[in-house]
């Protein structure tokens, strides 16, 4: 597998469609334990991302992801702007100048996790999007990516697991134990992001 410029762009287009389609779901999850703006923030943010990358020429997928990072940082006002922005910026830094194969993609995701941990002052297992990213990293480490759609299944399980955790980070942490029983909205939005990636990889695998 090699992530190309076209695939990176397609990844963002599919992600935009998913955020548009699932805006209400994310909003509902965020209304339950957050401030209720996650659906609209992600839909708007990725719409801006797709517009930005449509008007730019790219030589390398790292440059696409850098544009994604800058756009999300500028356009998304909640925590998802700085966190996803940092994630894409760090991925871009790792990919720069390299052929983005499975190993580089895994390293990029690991560096995204490091950045988000630092930015959000959080760790894996605290009912945040980090849980999903960590799962994707493990998957890329142990599987051969011949069935990219498996990524969707493992992410789904992690999102489900966040229900059981009490939030200690972000707005949900103000609810203490009442945050238990609800899926983490950030994990859900990361799920859509990786679902989009899996679809792009799947398409490529069947060509």
């Amino acid at each position: 597998m090699e992530l190309t410029v076209d695939m990176a762009i397609n990844w963002m287009e599919i992600a935009r469609d998913k955020y548009k389609e699932n805006k209400e779901t994310l909003t509902m999850l965020d209304q339950a334990i957050g401030d209720g703006d996650h659906g609209i923030n992600m839909a708007r943010g990725y719409q801006a991302v797709v517009e930005k990358i449509a008007e730019t020429e790219y030589d390398h997928p790292a440059d696409v992801l850098k544009s994604v990072a800058m756009t999300l940082m500028a356009k998304v006002g909640g925590a998802s702007g700085p966190l996803y922005g940092t994630a894409f910026m760090n991925m871009s830094m790792v990919m720069k100048g390299k052929t983005v194969d499975q190993k580089v993609l895994k390293e990029a995701i690991d560096h995204a996790i490091t950045g988000m941990k630092q930015r959000g002052k959080s760790e894996i297992g605290e009912k945040t999007l980090l849980d999903v990213w960590d799962q994707v990293s493990s998957y890329l480490d142990s599987e051969d990516l011949s069935e990219p759609k498996e990524i969707i299944e493992v992410c789904q399980a992690v999102v489900e697991d966040t229900k059981q955790i009490q939030a200690t980070k972000g707005r949900a942490s103000y609810l203490n134990e009442r945050s238990i029983g609800h899926e983490d909205p950030g994990s859900m939005s990361s799920f859509y992001l990786f679902e989009a990636l899996a679809e792009v990889l799947e398409k490529e695998a069947t060509v």
Partner: peptide, 11 residues
């Protein structure tokens, strides 16, 4: 005021 404002301030 709230956490995500800190992230944007740091950035």
């Amino acid at each position: 005021d709230l956490g995500s404002a800190r992230m944007n301030a740091e950035m």
